[in-house]
Every structure is written in structure tokens, then in C-alpha cells.
Amino acid sequence: MYNSYDYLEELEDFLGGTFHQDIGSPEQALNEFINEVSKECLLSTIKDCEKFLNSNLTKQEKESFIQNNAEVYFPAIELTPLQWLNKLVQQMKEAVKTK
């Protein structure tokens, strides 16, 4: 049977839908996402992020994917795209504890 679930597509939707050009800041956008979604959605997003971070893509491919899907100016936040995504995962994991 064909499995239509694609974690990369889900991750693209999360990054593009949450971190777009109209956000005040990446931190504010993440807080809004955490406050608006269910615990199940948060857990699913964490799972997709971790699957991506642990995938066989090269570091450069991962960094490019994040940069292409999130409207974040990484030099301003002084993190690489991968450091930033790892930080998001940790923040979401903390948020799950209180949902």
C-alpha cells in the first residue's frame, strides 16, 4: 500500500506556515504556533523535525532545506539553520510538558 505521509512535506508546511515574512520574530512565531496547536500536533511536528535532523541528508542539504522554507535571517539570530531547528525542537518538547 502506498504511504502518502511525507515528513519533508509536513516539515515544509510547518516551516513555511509558521516562519513566513509577516512574523514579528522567529520566537514570537514559535510561541504562537505552540499556543495554537494541539498537543498531538506538537508531538507530530517534533517527530517530523527529528526524522529530518536524523535523516541521511548531508548537513548542507539540511541547511538549504531549512533556509528555503523558513523566512528567517540566520545571521541576525546568530545560529545556523540546523542549530536553530534543534533549538525549536527543544522548545517544543518543553511546551509539550505543559499542554
Rank of each mutant, 00 (worst) to 15 (best):
L85M: 08
N86G: 09
K39D: 09
P75Q: 13
N86Q: 12
L53W: 10
K51N: 06
F74T: 09
F14V: 03
N86H: 08
E36H: 09
E36S: 14
K51F: 03
S55A: 08
L82W: 00
V89W: 04
N3F: 06
L43W: 01
P75H: 14
Y7N: 05
I23C: 02
E40N: 12
D6R: 13
I77K: 08
D48E: 08
N35W: 01
S44K: 14
S4E: 12
T80W: 04
N31E: 14
E71H: 14
P26T: 02
L82K: 13
F74A: 06
L43Q: 15
F65M: 04
P81C: 10
I23T: 07
Q90W: 00
N31D: 12
T45L: 03
Y5R: 13
E32G: 00
I23Y: 01
L82G: 03
E10G: 04
E32T: 14
V72M: 02
E94A: 10
S38W: 01
D13E: 11
I46N: 05
M1V: 15
I46E: 03
K59Y: 14
E61N: 09
E50N: 15
Q91I: 02
D6A: 08
F65Q: 07
Q67S: 13
Y2P: 10
T98H: 12
A70N: 05
E50A: 01
F14Y: 15
Q21K: 15
L43R: 13
I34K: 07
D48M: 00
P26I: 04
G17W: 01
T18F: 02
D6P: 03
K62C: 04
F65G: 06
L11K: 10
K59M: 10
K47T: 00
P75R: 14
K87R: 15
E27H: 05
N54R: 14
T58K: 12
L85G: 08
E32Y: 08
V37T: 12
F52I: 04
S64G: 02
N3Q: 11
E63G: 03
Y2N: 09
Q91F: 01
K51M: 08
S44P: 00
K39G: 07
Y7K: 11
A29C: 06
